Computed example of a mutant assay.
Amino acid sequence: MTASLPFTNKIIIITGAGSGIGKATAIKLSTLGATLAITDITSSSLEKTLSLCTPPAFEKHEKHFTSVFDVGKTEPCNEFILNVVEKLGRVDHVFNCAGVNPTDLATAEITDEYWDKLINTNLKGLFNITRAAIPHMPSGSTFVNTSSIKGLGPGSGFAVYCASKYGIIGFSKSVALELGSKGIRTNIIAPGYIDTPTNASVVAGPESVARAAAMVSSGRLGTPEEVADVVVFLMSEESRYMNGSVVEIHGGMKL
């Protein structure tokens, strides 16, 4: 008899699954037997992720569920969770990964539109998905929420981004206290410089990447796959006594 994979029969939601860390985590979990409900705001990116997710137990993707919407808007989040439960039965794990990376802006130059974009996606979006999912999660479920090293320390020119990422940590720790007695754990990852398509250093070009790498004792940017490994650990039984923890993933960054 073939041993089952560690996430066989587990229903896992991943927001921001179209690229970077969300994409890498979806691919990894699919190889571990998970049934995925993945979302992104861009349909082409989401379809690309789906094409790379190959559940070993199935030849096709019928067991996976995809949806394209903006997590910053309440009703689409509520509808998504209800659709997941209707199609897949429940929610076992949630990886809140959707987010907008920052632009270096002086506070006096911040527009209402910029504030709304970052806060609505990074913080309100995480809240929307979390609130909608809680009633459908059994004991043993987990949330893994994505903050940042900028959720642990300030950055000049990054006031709004820091506000959103600090907020994620406070929100997540409160949820951990609230849901712990129900057997639902909530933990937070705080990545540093990760080589994703939307990372500000990557967007700026090789010289900017080199400057960022010089700030890391490991001498390089991290990969989305390295972050995905930590996310999977936080969903697993191996982390069963971790609740409300913030896990820094930055290769020894000089903070």
Rank of each mutant, 00 (worst) to 15 (best):
S51H: 06
L52R: 01
P56V: 08
A57I: 10
A57Q: 12
A57D: 11
F58Q: 02
E59G: 14
K60M: 12
H61A: 14
H61I: 12
H61Q: 13
E62F: 15
K63L: 15
K63Q: 14
H64Y: 10
H64W: 06
V68N: 06
V68A: 08
F69L: 03
G72E: 07
G72I: 02
G72K: 00
G72A: 08
T74E: 11
P76V: 02
C77G: 09
C77R: 02
C77S: 13
C77K: 02
N78Q: 13
I81H: 02
I81D: 04
N83F: 08
E86W: 08
E86N: 10
E86F: 12
R90C: 13
R90T: 15
V91Q: 06
V91M: 01
D92W: 08
V94Q: 03
V94S: 05
C97Y: 10
A98Y: 05
V100G: 03
N101F: 15
P102Y: 09
D104R: 08
D104A: 14
T107I: 15
E109M: 13
E109D: 14
E109T: 10
E109F: 09
D112H: 08
E113G: 04
E113D: 14
W115L: 10
W115M: 09
D116A: 11
D116S: 11
L118C: 04
I119E: 09
N122F: 14
N122P: 15
L123Q: 01
L123K: 02
L123I: 09
L126T: 07
L126Y: 09
F127M: 06
F127Y: 11
N128M: 03
I129D: 03
T130H: 05
A132S: 06
A132P: 05
I134C: 08
I134R: 01
H136T: 04
H136I: 06
M137V: 12
P138F: 07
S139V: 11
T142L: 00
V144M: 08
V144E: 07
V144T: 13
V144K: 04
S148A: 10
I149R: 05
I149M: 14
K150V: 12
G151I: 04
P154Q: 04
P154M: 07
P154H: 07
P154F: 13
G155K: 12
G155A: 13
S156T: 12
S156D: 11
F158K: 09
F158D: 10
A159W: 05
C162P: 05
C162D: 11
C162M: 10
A163Y: 01
A163I: 05
S164N: 06
S164A: 14
Y166V: 09
I168K: 00
I169W: 15
G170K: 03
F171N: 02
S174T: 14
S174M: 11
V175D: 11
V175K: 09
A176D: 01
L177P: 04
E178T: 06
G180Y: 04
S181Y: 05
S181N: 03
G183D: 08
I184P: 10
R185T: 11
R185A: 12
T186S: 15
N187Y: 06
